[in-house]
Every structure is written in structure tokens, then in C-alpha cells.
Design a protein around this nucleic acid. Structure first.
Length: 823
RNA sequence: GCCCAGGUGGCGGAACUGGUAGACGCGUUGGACUUAAAAUCCAAUGUCCUUUGGACGUAUCGGUUCGAUUCCGAUCCUGGGUACCA
């Protein structure tokens, strides 16, 4: 008769639900430990294997932390707004609220079957008015503090459908569904002024316990660069324009200037002869993606405008071009072209036969005036008037100061980071709480009129405007200021706005009067451990930090940073090493495995088969290995059930006992160390070693000595060690071993060093860095003693024949390395 | 293209700050049990060779070091992100 994992799980799920063992009261909580896992978005799908991996294993981690005595707050919710539900509605005519709610309910069932200990009493759903009311409040708060504004920005416009498309809907410049060509079009959009916080977002990074790769990515994304803004005069116009450069030392090498094709002034400066080609080029550029525009592998394209600028340092007349490698969103939207000392400029000048002037000489080389490629390193300045002979690094400061005193330029810090575009021309999102009044202009909806409810009956006709525009009873309203007729903002908020503050809402999830009570956020924030995918490194994680910083500045939260410590989980791939997807047919459904094998075994496999941070491909064989181990454990417990409940005297330890105790304590040590740092796979490996040691002990014992106190205690410790990884299974056997309390109320075992002390150890003997033998020596051996034992080895002697030892390296407890040469 | 990771047996993966590469497991092979199979248990298992021994081996090439999977440089490949998927 074998153990019924599935029936056992059903029993404990209902027991745990009845005694509410998963829920905490934040008001009564002392010394909180807030563990947050990025919430799932039910807008498109249900929980898949990746979610199981993320949420199931974090439950294991949290169970472990609780058994370490931490008071864990471990909430869960749903990021329910988003594009997939809306697309589903367009395709199938099912309202997003219906499809999303259905998915949420299904996911809740899945979570239940997982046997996880998330606290659903603090659940949030971002698509419900009791949540998005406060998302709107976040918008209002930013707006009131001058951090939300409206300006024109380009969007992916599908002229065939009259709609805005998401980047992922545009494939090769075409709408993926209809094949219509997509162009960039300017629309008025709402932005959050995240750039105001660029410096602080960058500086604070070093205070965070985050993966270094995430810090590096965010730091590059913010992209601080120090340089100089230089003013160029226009020939034949009475205005100037600015360029930003990090290389003012190459100013004498400028042979042309390039505007971004979208730059406002382009059509103004273009001469009549050039107008047609410039206009063509602008249209072409509008069809391109930014990634392609910036590719340095792509051949450079551009058009001459017919206009000229004046170099402020030498009065030279230089041609003005437009080219797609210049972006209107970065710097001033104009760059100075220095073919001699910038690779892209070099390629551009080569393509259009523009002159290339050398103004920096490589140090320690013969002076020559020709350049075969751009020289981008520092060097000695030449062809630069009074700066000739200077070191180019020195010249940077000098010329910037000179330009500053002439009023022709200034030092400038530039960021690559752009303001956060938060408006979406979509239905399934939180409405932006703004009213446009013909008399009063842009008016914020007063707090007591929030939430601005998302109307239910909306048609998704492509009219070129947000779907909400078609809902007349939503669109037409009265102005909160003057009471006259007015219209509502019809754009909705980016779902990243919803997820930028959810961790503030969780501890006070049911507050009707405010987004959160300050006393509670001060008590419960910041999040102590945040876990989610690395794909969020630059967007969600940056947006959340920004919103938290603003809230901190306004006194709502205790710290500037929301997430003290961060870990990323890896991705579970299909057996074919590809990302799982329905369309590829390589998706593995967790539900099936839960039904056939039980959630403990699925969890055990996910723990054992992967490095948590890296993920990897699903493997049937790997799953089987977990299932076999689980069954072996069940057999062991079944055999020993009588022993577990007997009362036995303590004993003195034989050498076999000591061997078992060594493995036991080594496993305890390993499981503690590894689980803490998310190395679930090696934790399980240590438990397998312990299992093997238990069976070895049995095989080498006599009938009288098998069922002793040590065996009983080892088995019970084994159960506690395994409990975070197989919660239902261990809870059952803990109870069957006569315990009244839940196993999860146990303190997690700690190892005792006295059982890990070995009298004898094995050390490697190396000759010229190659391992030649292994010797057994007493653990306290000195270098000389080890050398003597090593020299006794015939293997070693063989390698020493005709050699003399010229050096020896001794690493205590590890090896001795003899360096020899022929004598 | 740019930013950031990763590349270790037939496979999943170990190896803490440079110190015995391949823990743990899957698979395979052989054996035990069985009428037989499954399950289970035991043993072997990086590759190659002239096999009581030895050479090679952590994507490739090079460097630093007594010693490199680990540090440095170059190259190739795979993955994540690239601002409207979340």
C-alpha cells in the first residue's frame, strides 16, 4: 500500500483553511518581515508553470523564514488591467471584467491547490474601483506636485484601423493582425516627470541589496552623462540651436550638424530645393522603430537640408543634415558631426562624402593628418587654434569654461532616461482623473469625486480615439470648478502605474477612506525581500522606486526606497529549451501534474531540478526523480511509523552513530545555508544525502540497534527539514509521529558543530599543480607532517624521481602542492 | 545595434572569497528479486589511450598565477531588456 499524496493534500488544505494559519494581523505585528512577490496579471491567462515556480518556491522560502522565527507579511493580489483582456474582448466580444474575473477566480483555486501560505486577506485587484480609486489618487498627488503633465509624443499609429498599437503589436513596421503599415504619429500624452528624480534614482542604487546586474542595467538605463551644451548660430535665421556633446574637445573637428528628422525646426530651415527629399526622408523615418534607427550595423542614411550653421569657435559655415540616428528624445535632438572622432559620425561622413578633420592625435605616434577610422580615445589636440598641443581631457574643461564665459555654452548633465508616458488610448485601465473645461482648462477631479468609474458599456470601435470617447455619458460631465459643461479625459493609465504602488496598499488593503494609513505604511514598509522576474529591471522596478520616492518626499512612506532586497527567479522553459507558449505547443500545464501527482511532488521537482535564479528547461526525467524521492520518503516513514511514536531512552554514540550524526548535521547546515540564498536544488541534494545515510545506517545495523533514539530523532529532524519543500506530506507524518502542533510551528533545526569535527581528513598531493595522490592525515596536521605522509606515497615518489623540490605550497585542510624541476 | 546575463559529462545541475572539477539526481550498462515485466535494491559510469598507469577535459583562442569553471583580453553562440506585453 502506498502513500496517497493527493488525498493527503486535500485533507491538509482544508485543515489549514479552517484554522486560518496563513493570515496575520498587521496591527498586532511586531518586527515585521515583508516578503513581496510580483503579482500575476490575470488579464490574459491563468497560472502557468512559471507562476508555480515563482509562487510555489517563494512559499517554501517564506515557510522557512517563519520557522526561523520571522514575522512574515506575505500578501498576494492581481495586476488585473492590461492589453490582453482588451484584445480578447475585441476578438470574442467578452467584456474584460468578465474574462479577468474568471481568470482571477481560477487562479485563486490554483493557489489553493498549490498549498501556499500567502495571506489572501490582504488581496488587491487593481481593476476594481476600490483599488483604482487610489491609483487615480496617486495620479492626482503627482499632478498637484507638478509631476504630471501633458505634451505631444509619437505613438505607433495604424492608419488602416485608426488606432494606436502597442510595440509588441508592430512586426516589421506592420500591424501584426491586419498587416497595415504603421507610422509614428504625434498625440497629446500624459507624462510623469521621473526625470526630476533621475539623479536620486541613480545615486540610491548603491544602497540597495539588489543583484549587481539589475543595478547595472538600471544605471545604464538612467544613463547619466556629463558634457557640454553648445550654442550654434543659424546662417540666415535670427535664432540659435543647441547641441549636447560629451566631447567638446572635438568642437574644431565639426564638419556638419545633424538634426533629428522629427525636430520642430527642420521644415523651417529646409531650402526649397531640398524640401521634397527632406519630406520624403521624414516620412520614411516615421515608419521605423527606434531599435533599427540606432543600429550601428545599418548603413547610414540622411538628407541635406540646404541650411548652414556657424561653428561658435571658428565661425566656419557647416552644412545641416537630418538623419535617423539622431533622436529627438535625447539631448537637444541635434548632434554635431565629428567624423574624425566618433564612429557613427565617421560612417555618416563616409556615406555622404563629408569632410573629415583630425583634431586629436594619438599619443606617442607620428603626426599624420589622415584617418582610416574614427579615433575616439583621448590624445593631443591639433588643428584647434589656441588649444593646440593640449591634452584633450584638459581641453574639455578649458573649452567648456571658455564657452560659458562667452555665453556660447555650458556644462550640462544629461540623462538617457525619459519621462514616463502614462496615458494609453485604451479601455481596460484606470481612467485619468482629469476634466477638460472650455472655461477653466485642465481640471483635476477632486478627491471626493474619486473614483472616476470606468463605464461598463463601451464599444471598441476604431475611431482614432480612446474607446472611452464613444461613451457619451462618461465623456460629458460638468466642470468641478465652474459647474459648466465639460468633458472627461478619455485616456487610461498605463498598468505600470497600478503596479508602482501596490506594495503600499497591501498592508492596508481594505482602507475605504485613503490609499493607506500612514501609521501602517510607516510600520510595514519598506518591503524586506522582493522577488520577481529580471525582465522588470528597467521599467516596473524603476517606476515603483520613483513613485515611492515621491510618496516619501510627501511623508507618506518611511523610506525613499521601496525594496530593500531583491532577487530574480529564472524562467521555466519548455522541454525544447524554448520559452513555453501555447502557440509553440511546448507548454506544460501545472494543473495536470497537480492532479496526477500532487502539488508537493511538483513543488519538490521545481525546487530540485533548477537553479532558482536561472531557471531552465522542463524535463520529464527530472520530474520523475522528484517523484521517486518523494515515494522513497513515504516508504521510509511508513516503515518507521511505530518507531516515530515510541518512547525511547537516549543513548551513547557508536562510530556508526557518529557517521550518521555527521551527515545529519552537515545536511542541517547545508539546508540552512542554501535555502536562505534560494539554492533550493542543493538543499534537496543535502536531504537526499541524509536519506541515503539513514538507509546506509539501517543496512549496517543489527535488528536491535536500528530502532533506537538516534534513528527516531533523525527521522523527525528530517521531516522538519523537508517541510518547507513538501508541506502537506511533512505535516501529515509529523502528526502521525504523535505531535499535536503543526510542523510549521517548529523551530527550524540548527546544526551542532561538535558533530562536524572530523579526526581525519583527506588532502590532495599535487606535483606542479597536478593532482597525483590523496592522503589521509589527522585534521590538525602541520605542513611538515603532511609532507612526510605525502613523500611516503609510492605514486608521489614515482613523480619525484630525478626531480628536486624547489617550492611547496600548503593550503590547510585542502592540499599540498610540490613544485619540482629536474635535478 | 545598444545594455545586461549565461555557456561545465548523454541530460538537469554542484563547486562558499583562485585550491582535489563533475556534489545530488536522471539516463545508460551489469547484477539481485520475479515465470516474466514493472517497481524496488546493489554496483559501475567525464572522454580518450598502448589501461596495476597515463593524457586530455568547464564554448573558442590567448594572458596572469605554484595552481583558473572562478581573474584579465579577444572571439563565437544562447537568453532577457530596449521605454504602449506585463
Amino acid at each position: 500500500m502506498s502513500f496517497d499524496f493527493i488525498a493527503n493534500e486535500a485533507k491538509w488544505r482544508s485543515n489549514w483553511a479552517n484554522d486560518e494559519s496563513n493570515t496575520v494581523d498587521v496591527n498586532a505585528m511586531e518586527d515585521k518581515y515583508y516578503v513581496l512577490v510580483m503579482f500575476p496579471y490575470p488579464s490574459g491567462d491563468r497560472l502557468h508553470m512559471g507562476h508555480w515556480y515563482q509562487y510555489g518556491l517563494m512559499d517554501t522560502w517564506v515557510r522557512y523564514q517563519r520557522m526561523q522565527g520571522k514575522n512574515v507579511f506575505f500578501p498576494m493580489g492581481f495586476d488585473a488591467f492590461g492589453l490582453p483582456a482588451e484584445n480578447y474582448a475585441i476578438k470574442h466580444g467578452i467584456h474584460p471584467d468578465i474574462s479577468t474575473t474568471k481568470n482571477v477566480n481560477y487562479m485563486l483555486e490554483q493557489f489553493e491547490k498549490m498549498g501556499v501560505s500567502y495571506d489572501f486577506n490582504y488581496k488587491v485587484d487593481t481593476s476594481k474601483p476600490d483599488y483604482y480609486k487610489w491609483t487615480q489618487w496617486i495620479f492626482s498627488t503627482l499632478y498637484k506636485n507638478g509631476l504630471a503633465y501633458k505634451k505631444e509624443a509619437p505613438v505607433n499609429w495604424c492608419p488602416g484601423l485608426n488606432t494606436v498599437l502597442a510595440n509588441e503589436q508592430v512586426i516589421d513596421g506592420k500591424d501584426e493582425r491586419t498587416g497595415y503599415e504603421v507610422v509614428q504619429k504625434n498625440l497629446a500624452q500624459w507624462f510623469f516627470k521621473i526625470t526630476d528624480y533621475a539623479e536620486k534614482l541613480l545615486d540610491n542604487l548603491e544602497t540597495l541589496d539588489w543583484p549587481s546586474k539589475t543595478v547595472a542595467m538600471q544605471s545604464n538605463w538612467i544613463g547619466r552623462s556629463e558634457g557640454t551644451e553648445i550654442e550654434f548660430a543659424m546662417e540666415g535665421h535670427d535664432w540659435n540651436f543647441k547641441v549636447f556633446t560629451t566631447r567638446p574637445d572635438t568642437l574644431f573637428g565639426v564638419t556638419y550638424v545633424t538634426f533629428a528628422p522629427e525636430h520642430q525646426k527642420v521644415l523651417e530651415i529646409t531650402t526649397d530645393e531640398q524640401r521634397d527629399s527632406v519630406q520624403d526622408y521624414i516620412e520614411q523615418t516615421a515608419k521605423m522603430k527606434e531599435v533599427d534607427r540606432l543600429s550601428t550595423a545599418k548603413e547610414k542614411t540622411g538628407v541635406f537640408t540646404g541650411a548652414y550653421a556657424i561653428n561658435p569657435v571658428n565661425g566656419e559655415k557647416i552644412p545641416i543634415w537630418i538623419s535617423d540616428y539622431v533622436l529627438v528624445t535625447y539631448g537637444t535632438g541635434v548632434v554635431m558631426g565629428v567624423p574624425g572622432h566618433d564612429e557613427r559620425d565617421f560612417a555618416f561622413a563616409e556615406a555622404f562624402n563629408l569632410p573629415c578633420r583630425k583634431v586629436i592625435q594619438e599619443p606617442n605616434t607620428e603626426l599624420s593628418s589622415t584617418l582610416k577610422s574614427a579615433y575616439t580615445e583621448p590624445g593631443i589636440v591639433l588643428n584647434s587654434g589656441k588649444y593646440d598641443g593640449m591634452n584633450s581631457l584638459e581641453m574639455k574643461t578649458k573649452i567648456t569654461n571658455d564657452l560659458e564665459s562667452n555665453g556660447k555654452g555650458q556644462k550640462k548633465v544629461n540623462f538617457r532616461l525619459r519621462d514616463w508616458l502614462v496615458s494609453r488610448q485604451r479601455y481596460w485601465g484606470a481612467p485619468i482623473p482629469i476634466i477638460n473645461c472650455p472655461n477653466c482648462g485642465e481640471v483635476l477631479v477632486p478627491e471626493d469625486q474619486l473614483p472616476v468609474l470606468l463605464p461598463e458599456n463601451v464599444e471598441f470601435k476604431p475611431t482614432g480615439e480612446s474607446p472611452l470617447r464613444n461613451c457619451e455619458e462618461f465623456y460629458h460631465t460638468t466642470c468641478p470648478k465652474c459647474g459648466g459643461p465639460a468633458t472627461r479625459e478619455v485616456d487610461t493609465l498605463d498598468t505600470f502605474v497600478c503596479s508602482s504602488w501596490y506594495y503600499m496598499r497591501y498592508p492596508d488593503a481594505h482602507n475605504q477612506a485613503q490609499a493607506f494609513d500612514k501609521d501602517i505604511t510607516y510600520k510595514m514598509l519598506p518591503v524586506d525581500k522582493y522577488v520577481g522576474g529580471p525582465e522588470h529591471a528597467c521599467m516596473h522596478l524603476l517606476y515603483a522606486r520613483f513613485v515611492n520616492m515621491v510618496m516619501h518626499d510627501l511623508g507618506y512612506v518611511p523610506t525613499a526606497e521601496p525594496f530593500t532586497s531583491l532577487t530574480h527567479q529564472g524562467m521555466i522553459l519548455g522541454p525544447d529549451m524554448q520559452k513555453m507558449s501555447k502557440s509553440k505547443g511546448n507548454a506544460i500545464s501545472p494543473d495536470e501534474y497537480v492532479e496526477n501527482f500532487g502539488s508537493d511532488i511538483l513543488r519538490l521537482y521545481l525546487c530540485f531540478g533548477f537553479n532558482y535564479v536561472e531557471g531552465g528547461p522542463w524535463s520529464e526525467g527530472g520530474f520523475k526523480s522528484a517523484s521517486r524521492f518523494a515515494e522513497r520518503c513515504a516508504r521510509l516513514m511508513e516503515e518507521k511509523v511505530e518507531l516515530l511514536t515510541s518512547s525511547l531512552p537516549e543513548q551513547s554514540y557508536s562510530s556508526a552513530d557518529k557517521k550518521l550524526l555527521y551527515v545529519l548535521h552537515n545536511s542541517i547546515k547545508g539546508v540552512n545555508q542554501d535555502t536562505q540564498r534560494f539554492m533550493f536544488n542543493t538543499s534537496i541534494a543535502r536531504l537526499m544525502e541524509l536519506y541515503n545515510a539513514i538507509t546506509d545506517y539501517e543496512n549496517n545495523s543489527t535488528a536491535e540497534t536500528i530502532n533506537n533514539f538516534l534513528m527516531q530523532q533523525t527521522l523527525k529532524t528530517f521531516l522538519v527539514l523537508l517541510s518547507p519543500f513538501m508541506p502537506h506530506f511533512c505535516e501529515e507524518w509529523w502528526q502521525l509521529s504523535g505531535e499535536q502542533q503543526s510542523i510549521f510551528n517548529q523551530k527550524f533545526p540548527a546544526h551542532d558543530n561538535q558533530f562536524l569535527q572530523l579526526d581525519e581528513i583527506k588532502m590532495a598531493v599535487m606535483i606542479n599543480g597536478k593532482r597525483r595522490d590523496e592522503v589521509t592525515v589527522s585534521a590538525s596536521s602541520t605542513e611538515d607532517q603532511v609532507l612526510n605522509v605525502a613523500l611516503d606515497s609510492t605514486k608521489v615518489q614515482k613523480h619525484l624521481e630525478g626531480m628536486q623540490i624547489i617550492k611547496q605550497i600548503f593550503v590547510k585542510g585542502k592540499l599540498i602542492n610540490l613544485i619540482v624541476k629536474p635535478s
